[in-house]
Design a protein around this nucleic acid. Structure first.
Lengths: 223, 223
DNA sequence: TTTCCAAGGTCTACATGTAATCCGTCAGAC
DNA sequence: GTCTGACGGATTACATGTAGACCTTGGAAA
C-alpha cells in the first residue's frame, strides 16, 4: 500500500478497497476472500487485511466458516427483501424523528441534494452518481434524526442492500420516481409533519422494493 | 486460557468472558480495555483479545479512539432510549412477520417460556433468570420471523441495552407487567392476528422503556 | 469402476516482534 | 503563576512466524 500513505489507518483503506471491489462486481458473490492472497495483491501485511475481512463479515457483506475462510456473501432475493422490509420501518422512524430535530440548515442541505438529483436527471444518465446521491439523501435524514443506534443499524443494512440495487438506477423511470418520492419526504419534513414524513419515507422504501423486484424479474427472465 | 480448551475458537471464548465481565459490572462503563493487560490476565496472546475487543466495538458495547484504545461504552440515558425506540419498531415488525411464519411448535415453545416465567414469578425473586427468560422469549419470536437481517439488527441492539436494563428485573411489579404483556403477544400470535401481534409487541417495548425510565429515575435520585 | 486413504498444499487461528503514536508529567522559560 | 515543550511509559497498528485444520488429488485396494 505504498501509493496511498496518507493519514488514514491502513485497515480503513484496505476495507474501502475491498468494499469497492465487491460493490463493483470485481469480487462477485461467492468469491473467496483469501487473506494471504489479498495481502500480496494489495502489498500490505496480513493483519490489516484480516481485520478488514472481519469488518466485511460484521457488515454482512461477507460470510465466514471456521477454518475455511470468508467469501463474498451471496444474497438471495429473499434476504434482500428481508433487508428492505427492515429498512422500511427504520427509514420511516428516521424521518419521523428527523422531523422534530432537523434545523433550517439540515433542510437546506436536503433541498440541495434533491436539486442536484433533479439536474442529474436532465443530463446524461449517470447511475453511479445517482446512487450516490440517493444514499446521501437518506444518510442526511438519518443523521438529522440524532439517533445513533438507528444510524448504525441502517448503515449495516445499506451495506448489504448495496450488493444488489447497484444496477437499478440505470432505468430512467425509477430515477424519476425516486426523485418525486424524495420531494414528498422533504416536503413533509419542511412542513414539520412527522406523521407524513414517516409515511412517505416508509412508502418510498416500499416502492423502491417493488421496483427492485420488477428490475430483478426483468434482468433475470428465466434461469 | 488453559482451563477451557474445548472445541470452540479461542476468540469466541475470550469475547464471551469479556462480555460477561462487562455485563456483570466487573468492567464498568468507561473502564479501559487494554489488549496487552487483558492478554496477560486471560493467559492468551494479544491476537484473540484484540479481535474480541473489535467485536465489542462493532456490537456497540465498547467505544474506540485511534491510537488510544478501547473502553467500555458509557451509555447515557439518551442513547439507551434511542436504542429502545428502534427496538419498538423492530420487535413490532418481528412479531408481525412471526405471526404468519410461526408454526405449532414455535407457539408451543413460546407458551412454555411464558409458563416458566409464570412459575418463576411465584418463587423467590431471581432477576438473573428472569432477564434470561425475557431475552429467550424475544429471541424466539425474532427467530420465528425468519428475517435474518431483522434478527441481526436486534441482536446488536440487545447487546447495548443489556448494559443498562440488568437491574430492573428486581422490581416485582415490572416482572408482573412483563409477563402480562408477553401473554398478550402470545395470544395475538396464537390467534394469527398480525396487526395485534405488532401492536402488542411495540407496546410492550414502549412500556418497558417507560418502566426503565422510572427505574433509572428512582435508582439515581439526585446527581 | 468405485471406494478408501494418504500426501500435499493452502489457509486459518493464534503467537509474537517492532515502529509510530498518544497521553500525562514535569522541568524550565516567561 | 501560567504556559511551553521535551521526556517516559504504555498502547496501538502493522508485520511476520508457526502449528493445526481443511480441501483437494492421486493412486492403490476392493
Amino acid at each position: 500500500m505504498v501509493a496511498s500513505d496518507n493519514g488514514e489507518l491502513l485497515t480503513d483503506t484496505v476495507y474501502q478497497r475491498l468494499a469497492e471491489r465487491i460493490f463493483s462486481g470485481e469480487l462477485p458473490p461467492g468469491a473467496p476472500l483469501s487473506v494471504p492472497a489479498l495481502a500480496v495483491e494489495l502489498n500490505v501485511s496480513r493483519s490489516p487485511v484480516r481485520e478488514s475481512v472481519q469488518r466485511l463479515i460484521y457488515d454482512g457483506i461477507a460470510v465466514h466458516t471456521p477454518y475455511a475462510g470468508a467469501k463474498v456473501a451471496a444474497m438471495d432475493e429473499e434476504s434482500i427483501f428481508d433487508v428492505m422490509r427492515v429498512r422500511e420501518v427504520l427509514d420511516g422512524l428516521a424521518a419521523q424523528e428527523a422531523t422534530v430535530r432537523i434545523g433550517d440548515e439540515g433542510l437546506r442541505v436536503l433541498a440541495e441534494i434533491v436539486e442536484r438529483q433533479s439536474e442529474l436527471l436532465e443530463g446524461a444518465p449517470d447511475p453511479q452518481a445517482e446512487a450516490a446521491l440517493d444514499l446521501e439523501f437518506h444518510t442526511a435524514i438519518r443523521a438529522a434524526s440524532g439517533n445513533a443506534a438507528l444510524r448504525d443499524a441502517l448503515h449495516r443494512l445499506d451495506a448489504r442492500a448495496h450488493l444488489y440495487r447497484s444496477g437499478m438506477w440505470s432505468v430512467q423511470r425509477n430515477r424519476e420516481h425516486a426523485l418525486a418520492e424524495h420531494r414528498a419526504i422533504l416536503s413533509a419534513l419542511d412542513a414539520g409533519d412527522a406523521v407524513a414524513a414517516q409515511a412517505t419515507a416508509t412508502a418510498h422504501v416500499a416502492a423502491l422494493t417493488v421496483r427492485m423486484k420488477r428490475w430483478l424479474a426483468a434482468t433475470r427472465p428465466t434461469p
